[in-house]
Write a protein that binds this DNA or RNA. Structure first.
Lengths: 329, 329
DNA sequence: CTCCTGTCTGGAATCGTTTCGACCAAGACT
DNA sequence: AGTCTTGGTCGAAACGATTCCAGACAGGAG
């Protein structure tokens, strides 16, 4: 910048004014500076800019597992939206560790991000909450609940309606004993799904559901499924609360020699690619993950520009499939 | 930092020395500084640090589509490895646009990343190459070829061996007319696969293969498959060069009423989750994407610490499946 | 002709670190 | 006793931008 000023024969402050679009600058000055900039191929140093003005033009993104298709799609949406607004994305993945969650929140702070898109591993972890209380930048939660003391926007899914539709469908087919193999109960989506299923089942007096919480992992799905299906009165339909869990459930069913939907009906979550070629086709509750990312990015930009925090809800929908049939009488 | 110095009654430079582990510091000084740091809850400002020392402790990551499972897995691997070394990851996605590729490379430069993990959309694009020539930081390509004038490390897959094994398998089953529905030819993996298939087919004199290049998209898969299968002498086996392409191919086969493997054998790329439950099970050429990320991160750290550029090759392996059978006589 | 107003402009301070050179006291050597 | 080293410390200059403040200059009014 000093070089530009020298070449143009003007002061550095004038160069800065021209480049930041300050109106107090004469046309002749603007031209001389622009010529020098072009001649030297000068470009602003964003680090120095962030140093002085505090605006780093960057936001953070953290979720449990960036390789999860839902999260990956959301991050892609966020990247696109932020890029269109001149922001960069610092990304990280907690691998399900709440310690890393807390560490990363602090680390984002040290990097002076202007905002943070967040999907923590454990909503109730004290260290995480402490780090969030101290966090001084725009905060947007992705499908997570958080105490009112934390001022933040959020984009959440309406898991209840999708789940309710799934349960209704199963009830109408004649199922009376359902099971939900659920993810980690210390995050919003798992809680919402469990509540929705418990509530929907009350519509029919002799229907019941057993909820098996655990983790978003194949091994949890495998164990829970084996346990459920080998009990005295096994469920006739299983709702699977995650695509990782589904892997384990499918493996367990194969091992047990149980056929879908003849022996047990299945509803899963989040359409997987090529699912339409799996036979029987899997009924599932779907949502649009990309929108979660773009919307999250919009909300964080809104906060950065001084807007008030708000929460936006996205729909989930139940898609029927061949994996659901009437139970064997 | 000034506050810490004041509270400890020492100079700011001493605080800096203590905090950066400089050995020229007495134990008593160290203790006083540490106490003050603890009392004030002080933490280093990484922006200012980067400003002064030029070391931003950040590296960039750019690929064509961050939501692609292969890329997402690689990024997860890179994040983990870099985190363990105190680095953060700036991520972006070119959405297949070479213009964005070039822009982003420059933008990473402005942010003063210390390194860049890169998988460009078009290896031959002039603007991209220009941006790379000017790029002044550690550069690691992910499964891309690049001119020798660019000093960079790379992690690449040995697509040839996996593809050769797949072709051998099909030849042994008796197939003589193969097709490869390939991705964009202006990137390394597509070129390598095409070459490997062409070379492997020569083993049997009366065997032939037709290669259909295009893009990594479902629509390309759909179009190419329809065209191939409705020709005078359609192939008896198709090798599919990407998971997006596979979607289109499958859809086309269903529409044409063709059964796998009865009417046509199929080999695909990169096992998809739940693939084991697709019937018939899909034969495929697989690779380990997470290792590409971790290895890429290791290579970039190596370069940052002054190491010499080098290229590492990762294996691909052919996994047989029910989707391959002898051709109908 | 002087004074004032308003528009541009350049210098200098600032952001929070690191690092260089200077300094000083104390012990080791001639 | 005087000088040299050594270990420890400090102040100040840098990194590259932004912004406040004061000065310059032109033009209009009295």
């Amino acid at each position: 910048m000093k070089d530009v000023a020298q070449r143009a024969g003007v002061g550095v402050s004038s160069v800065s004014r021209v480049l930041s679009g300050n109106p107090d600058v004469s046309p002749v000055m603007r031209n001389r500076v622009m010529d020098a900039v072009a001649a030297l191929g000068y470009e602003k140093d964003l680090i120095a800019q962030g140093m002085r003005s505090g605006a780093t033009s960057s936001v953070g993104f953290m979720a449990v597992d960036i390789a999860n298709p839902i999260i990956a799609a959301a991050s892609a949406g966020a990247i696109r939206e932020l890029r269109n607004n001149g922001y960069s994305l610092l990304i990280s993945s907690s691998d399900g560790s709440k310690e890393l969650d807390a560490d990363y929140i602090r680390s984002f702070q040290l990097r002076r991000v202007e905002g943070l898109l967040l999907s923590v591993a454990d909503e109730e972890d004290a260290r995480t909450l402490g780090a969030l209380e101290q966090f001084r930048a725009a905060l947007v939660f992705m499908d997570r609940a958080f105490p009112r003391s934390i001022k933040a926007s959020a984009v959440v899914y309406d898991h209840r309606s999708g789940m309710a539709a799934a349960v209704d469908h199963l009830l109408e087919l004649g199922h009376r004993k359902l099971a939900l193999i659920n993810g980690a109960p210390r995050v919003r989506p798992a809680r919402e799904r469990a509540n929705a299923v418990r509530q929907a089942i009350r519509r029919v007096s002799d229907a019941s559901v057993v909820v098996r919480g655990g983790s978003y992992s194949a091994s949890h799905g495998y164990d829970a499924c084996k346990l459920l299906m080998s009990s005295d009165s096994p469920p006739t339909a299983i709702i699977v609360g995650g695509n990782q869990i589904l892997q384990g459930v499918m493996a367990a069913l194969v091992e047990l020699g149980l056929k879908v939907p003849d022996d047990v009906s299945l509803v899963t979550l989040d359409n997987v690619p090529l699912a339409e070629f799996i036979s029987p086709s899997l009924a599932c509750v779907t949502r649009d993950p990309v929108t979660m990312g773009t919307l999250g990015a919009e909300l964080v930009l809104e906060l950065i520009h001084g807007g008030a925090p708000r929460t936006v809800e996205l729909p989930t929908t139940f898609v029927p499939g061949e994996s659901c049939a009437a139970p064997r009488s």
